[in-house]
Design a protein around this nucleic acid. Sequence first.
DNA 1: CCATTAACGACTA
DNA 2: TAGTCGTTAATGG
Length: 232
Amino acid sequence: MDPIKYLSRIDLFRGLSGEELRQLNAFTPMHTCKKGTVVASPHLERKALYLIKAGKVRLYKLTEDGKELTLDLLRTGHIFGDMTSFRTETRMFAVTMEDSVICSIDREQFQTIIGEKPGLALAYIDIVTARLKEVEEWLEYMAYGSVRKRLLFLLNKLSAKFGAGGEDEPEWGRLQVELTHQELASMTGSMRETITPLLNRLVSEGVLRKEAARGPYWIHRERLRAALAASK
DNA sequence: CCATTAACGACTA
DNA sequence: TAGTCGTTAATGG
C-alpha cells in the first residue's frame, strides 16, 4: 500500500498536508511484522516513538513473579512508546496481535520534526493527556471497583475502541479483538477462572452475545452502560 | 465477592 | 506430546 496512505491514518498526523506527509515519510520507514512479534521491550535499547500504520498491538509489563499485566491495546492509527520512556526506565513490552505495519521515530528525529512543525507537539500533548485521563479513570476502577465492574469498564472501552457497529442492529457492536479469558484477566487484575463465569453471566443478562462458540463477542452498548452503572 | 488450587476435556503447535 | 484454553468445583480469606 501507499506509504503516504498509511501515514495519513496516524492520529498524530491528522491535519498534515499531503506534502508534509511526504516529507515525513523519509523518517518513517515501513516495517512489517508478523503476529506475535515483540516490537519494543526493555532489552531493545532503542527508545523511540512507534506508529501503528496497520494492525493491532498489545502493551504489557512483566510483574515480579513473571506474570503479564496488559496495559493497553492499540490499533491502526495509534502511537506508543511516549516521550516519558525516552528519559525514564520503562519495563514495557509491545507485541503485535496480528500481522502489522509498524514504524518508529527515535527521539532526535521526532524533536527535529517537532521543531519544524510545532502543531505536532500540540497534537502529541492532546494524545498524551487523553491517555493520562484514561489511566486515571482506570485507576479509580481498579481501586474501588469489583472485578465485575472492572470487566464491564474494560468491555466498554474495548467496544469504543475496537467495536464495529452491526449494520442491521446498531445497538450491537462486534468486538474486533480476539482476547482470551487469560488476557481479559490480565487486564482487569483478575484470574481467568473468575472471568469465565462473569462472561457467561453477562451473556445470560443479554449484555454480551456470541454467534459461534469460537466467534467474536457482540456487545449491547446500552445494556453494558446500564450494567456498569448498576454494579458495585 | 473473589483468589487460589486443582483437575478435566478439547484444541493446537 | 506438551502446552494452552475454557470450564467447574472445593476451599478459604
